[in-house]
């Protein structure tokens, strides 16, 4: 895997962009920016959680983009949401109030896994484009959620937070769970990085090398679902989707190798959430939307970065 001059350049470039955005915030809203810094203690857990979610999403997002399943996170998120609604409905039938119970998250995870595995299984037939399968899962989960939504009297606020992102109410327990999830996912992905990559890049050849491509595909989807579902609870659906798409998109646009792709995506995944929180506070934007806005600013910057990176790569090859 190549990591060289272009990777260093991209690291420096996006670090500078981050610095520029912070400077812009301080320049435009000095009072609010200072207050943000002074109230760091209040923001510490949410920002750390956002960084962890960003790292998870930006890493997994590389696989999502390379496998051309960009909207899978929305499908899985909708499946998870339906699972959570279902758990509230079932609990209510037994006279139980779930509120913040982990049971609701487990239910969401179970349905999300079922949706992901259904997609992986249907995809193997290769008779339909992937988008149609994801669309089916998304629509089915959304429709089912609507069907039972009216019957769930309790917990709509919690469910809204899950869907649209309540990125500020992060407790230390949530943070610990998220950190544990991140560590587990990264360890798994690092240990089996070649199996995940090669079995999706050329499943036929790897089957001949003794790799069970079907197993590794399902395992990849399992880790995708775990990462998405745990991140949803912190950031919500749209910000997670944005982090799963935008950092990998920027990274892969001008990448010169696999390793560089992951590293640049991780850098962006770690940088965008805290900047999103910062701008959210300073300009009084909704947190999730602020995060997405910052991601879009990085995307605009990437149109400046990509041609330079490609030129550097060409010059290196010419030598």
């Amino acid at each position: 895997m190549s990591t060289g001059r272009t990777a260093y350049f991209r690291f420096i470039f996006y670090s500078l962009i981050s610095g520029l955005l912070i400077f812009a915030g301080y320049a435009l809203r000095p009072v609010e920016s200072s207050l943000f810094t002074e109230s760091w203690g209040l923001w510490r857990e949410p920002i750390l959680a956002g960084i962890l979610c960003g790292l998870i999403a930006s890493w997994l997002g590389i696989y999502v983009l390379l496998n051309r399943i960009v909207f899978i996170s929305l499908g899985i998120a909708q499946g998870a949401s339906f699972g959570i609604f279902l758990s509230f409905l079932v609990a209510a039938a037994f006279g139980i109030t779930l509120h913040e119970s982990p049971f609701s998250l487990l239910a969401g995870l179970a349905v999300a896994l079922a949706a992901a595995f259904l997609f992986a299984g249907l995809r193997r037939g290769r008779r339909l484009p992937d988008e149609s399968l994801i669309g089916f899962i998304y629509v089915a989960a959304s429709g089912l959620t609507l069907l039972i939504g009216d019957r769930v009297a309790e917990g709509h606020h919690s469910i809204d937070d899950l869907l649209f992102g309540n990125a500020v109410a992060v407790g230390s327990t949530d943070l610990a769970i998220l950190a544990g999830t991140a560590v587990a996912l990264f360890l798994l992905h690092f240990a089996f990085r070649r199996e995940f990559l090669y079995s999706s890049a050329d499943p036929e050849f790897m089957a001949l090398r003794g790799l069970n491509s079907r197993f590794w595909t399902f395992f990849l989807y399992f880790t995708l679902t775990m990462g998405i579902t745990f991140s949803l609870k912190t950031l919500g659906g749209l910000p997670v989707f944005a982090l799963m798409v935008i950092p990998p998109f920027i990274s892969l646009k001008a990448t010169q190798g696999l390793r560089e792709s992951f590293l640049v995506s991780l850098l962006l995944g770690a940088t965008i959430p805290p900047l999103g929180y910062f701008y959210s506070y300073v300009f009084a934007f909704p947190t999730g939307a602020s995060l997405i806005g910052v991601a879009c600013l990085f995307t605009i910057a990437s149109f400046l970065e990509a041609p330079i990176t490609r030129r550097l790569a060409e010059r290196k090859r010419a030598r």
């Binding site: 895997m1 190549s2 390379l66 051309r68 090669y198 050329d202 050849f205 001949l208 696999l258 792709s261």
Partner: peptide, 26 residues
């Protein structure tokens, strides 16, 4: 195995070195 046509997804930013590593993954 050498396929008739390249079957490696070219969207993956794999280098020649990465490709050869596929052949000796174990």
């Amino acid at each position: 195995y050498v396929p008739q046509e390249n079957q490696v997804d070219l969207l993956y930013p794999m280098s020649v070195g990465d490709l050869l590593n596929m052949g000796m993954i174990e």
